[in-house]
Design a protein around this nucleic acid. Structure first.
Lengths: 195, 195
DNA sequence: GGGCACTAACTATCGTCATAGATAGTTGGT
DNA sequence: ACCAACTATCTATGACGATAGTTAGTGCCC
C-alpha cells in the first residue's frame, strides 16, 4: 500500500508520466521510497482504475504520445486519509543486526570489513541526503519547485520544512548506524585480539 | 535468503523443532528476524533437502512424534560463508519518513499523534531489548545458555558480547528515532500554530 | 542516415512476506 | 471424561518486491 501512497505523494507536485515518476524516485521521494518501472506502471493503471489519478494522453515528439497522470480529488483525500491514520508497525527484519549477533562465527577480518563497509555505506548516503536537503532549501529541486509554485512564502516554507525534516531523520538514522559500527570495530578489536 | 541464515543462526545453539524455532523468534534471534510458522516449516524442509540441516523424528508424549532439526557441518560452513561475505544493501523503503515528508497534507493533530505514537512504539521496543540484554548478560536466555554450554568462560563472554552488541545497536537506532520524533513534535508545533 | 543515449512503456519469473486459515496430538485442570 | 491451552505441523492465497529482460519512439551528434 505504500507504493501507492508514495506515488500519490509525488503526484501532489505535478502531473507525471510513469517514466517521470520512475526518474523522480531518484530525487524527490526517491530516498524514502523506491520502485522499479515494472512495478510503477501497473500500479499507476490500478490507481487510475480506482479513481485516485487520471491519465491523459499527451503528444510526445513528432508523432509519439505519452500518458501523463494527475492526482484526482479522490486521490488527495485518500492520501490525506492515509496520513491522518497512524502507521501500523511491522516486525522489522534487520540483516545487519542478525549478522552482528553471530560474528563469533566469522573471520575477524571479515567482521572488521563488515563494519567498515557499513560506515562507508551510510556515510555515502548521508552525503546524498545532505545534497538533497540543499536542493530542498534553495528550492532548486524541480519537484518541490513545482509543488510550491504560486504558494505564499510561509506556506512554501512549511511544505519545504517537512521534507527537510524527513531527510534530517534519515541522516540522524545513518549517523546512529555509523556510531554503532565504529563501536563494532572496537569490539572486534577487543574480542578477537585477545583470544 | 536471510530467513535461511536466521534459521541457521538459531540452530547453532541447539537442535530444534519447527515450533521451537517459531517460539524462539520471540526470544533469541526474534528481535532481529522473524517469520511465521507457515514460512518456517517449508524453509526447514528445503534446508534439509539442501543438506544444511538434518531432521530427526523424536518421541513426543505417549504416542506422538515431532521432528527436530540439527545444523550440519555444511550448514555451519554456509552460515560462515554468509557472515564472511559483506552484505549487499538494498534500497530501503521508509514509510515513516515518507509520511513525515508530506505532513503538510495532514491534520496537525494527526501529525502530533503520529510522532507521539512513534516515540511510544520505539520506547516499548527499547524496554524489550533492554530486558533481552539482561537475559543475555546473566546467561538466563535459554538459547544462549545452550550455545555457551561447556564453553570456556572467555569464549562464552565473546559469544555473548556480540549478541549484546547487536541489541545495543537496535536500542541506539530506536533512540535516534525517538530523538527525531521529538523534534518532529516541535516542528509541528512551530509550523502549525503559526499558520 | 546511422548510432547512441534517453524517453516511454511493457512482460515474465520468482523470491519474500502477510495473513487466514486448517488438522491433530499432548498436557493439565476440573 | 471433557475442555482449554499449548505443542506441532500444515495449506492456501495474495501482496510486495527483485531482476531480467523486451519493444519502440525521440533527439542529438557525427
Amino acid at each position: 500500500m505504500s507504493l501507492r501512497n508514495a506515488l500519490l505523494a509525488m503526484l501532489t507536485s505535478q502531473p507525471m508520466t510513469g517514466y517521470d515518476v520512475y526518474k523522480n524516485f531518484q530525487t524527490s521521494v526517491g530516498y524514502v521510497w523506491h520502485a522499479p518501472d515494472s512495478q510503477i506502471y501497473p500500479e499507476l493503471r490500478r490507481m487510475e482504475q480506482d479513481g485516485l489519478i487520471r491519465g491523459e494522453t499527451v503528444p510526445w515528439g513528432k508523432r509519439g504520445t505519452k500518458k501523463r497522470y494527475a492526482i484526482t480529488e479522490a486521490g488527495v483525500e485518500s492520501f490525506q486519509a492515509w496520513l491522518n491514520t497512524p502507521p501500523e508497525y511491522q516486525r522489522e527484519r534487520d540483516p545487519v543486526r542478525l549478522r552482528a549477533a553471530y560474528l563469533e562465527w566469522a573471520e575477524p577480518e571479515a567482521s572488521s570489513e563488515f563494519f567498515t563497509a557499513h560506515i562507508a555505506y551510510h556515510s555515502a548516503r548521508i552525503e546524498d541526503w545532505k545534497d538533497m536537503i540543499r536542493t530542498l532549501r534553495d528550492h532548486s529541486n524541480p519537484t518541490l519547485a513545482k509543488r510550491i509554485e504560486g504558494k505564499a512564502s510561509g506556506e512554501a516554507d512549511r511544505i519545504t520544512a517537512y521534507k527537510v525534516f524527513a531527510y534530517e531523520g534519515m541522516i540522524a538514522r545513518a549517523e546512529a548506524e555509523i556510531a554503532w559500527a565504529e563501536r563494532g570495530l572496537e569490539l572486534v578489536e577487543t574480542l578477537e585480539r585477545r583470544g
